[in-house]
Design a protein around this nucleic acid. Sequence first.
DNA 1: CAGGATCCCTTCCGATACTG
DNA 2: CAGTATCGGAAGGGATCCTG
Lengths: 143, 143
Amino acid sequence: MRPSHTKGTMMADCSKLTLSSSAKNSDQCPDCQRINEVLTRVGDRWSVLVIISLAQYGTLRFNELKRNLGISQRMLSLTLRELVRDGLVHRNQYPTIPPKVEYSLTKMGESFREPVNALGIWALDNLSKIDAARASYDVDKAE
Amino acid sequence: MRPSHTKGTMMADCSKLTLSSSAKNSDQCPDCQRINEVLTRVGDRWSVLVIISLAQYGTLRFNELKRNLGISQRMLSLTLRELVRDGLVHRNQYPTIPPKVEYSLTKMGESFREPVNALGIWALDNLSKIDAARASYDVDKAE
DNA sequence: CAGGATCCCTTCCGATACTG
DNA sequence: CAGTATCGGAAGGGATCCTG
């Protein structure tokens, strides 16, 4: 794929371009491209929710996650497979009968908790505001 | 709608049940339901990237955003409309010829910067790790 | 219990053409 | 410049049946 970038925060680069008018006319922001890529990987709804659940409960089995999230079996299966593949979730299988599979966060998955948590807090804090803004907007449009 | 919330914590009540899709299961995690809702509103890729861009550059015109993000005109139009509707983005129109429209973050949009920034930093920090984990996983599967 | 395999409908989204 | 309108392919995602 694309060359791996140096570890570290590259956010500073772009942040400093805040008032640069020349930057406005440049091509695609490289950070946006990178962030875009990551969002493609772990930015979908189910991935986020699975990670949140595992962050909360520590370890969950397949059907526990399924019930907890109200996700279809198919989507949970696909989502977990990708999360394991991406190194965010650890899969622990017990070869018993019936089988038992436990999922938990890896180190990297754990590190995802913080930003996701921040997002969750903001979400709970602003949901009602968004609803209000939306209602107000719709009323204005109607008249 | 439901203004009650606890600031600074992920704890939530489960009184808001307007969850989409066929969620007939009642034993769903209430937090997951709420987070699910907010993700439905501002959790899509383009919304996040638009907000990041506006957070970085302050004010951007339509085509500036378009070039910056590499987004199609159609998606940008739809995304901006929703962000304005949700009260996250402010739209300033100058009735000149040719027209000039500037977008910037509202107060609430600004407050979204912090969690989104955390997400962005994590993204830039972990993209290479994800790529590595993915490559390793694929190799193991192949042999 | 933990999935895999299909079917099929919906939504997303880019490409394109057109307007004020 | 800043959009809107339309079309068609691609992806998302639920329902159902099947297996070890």
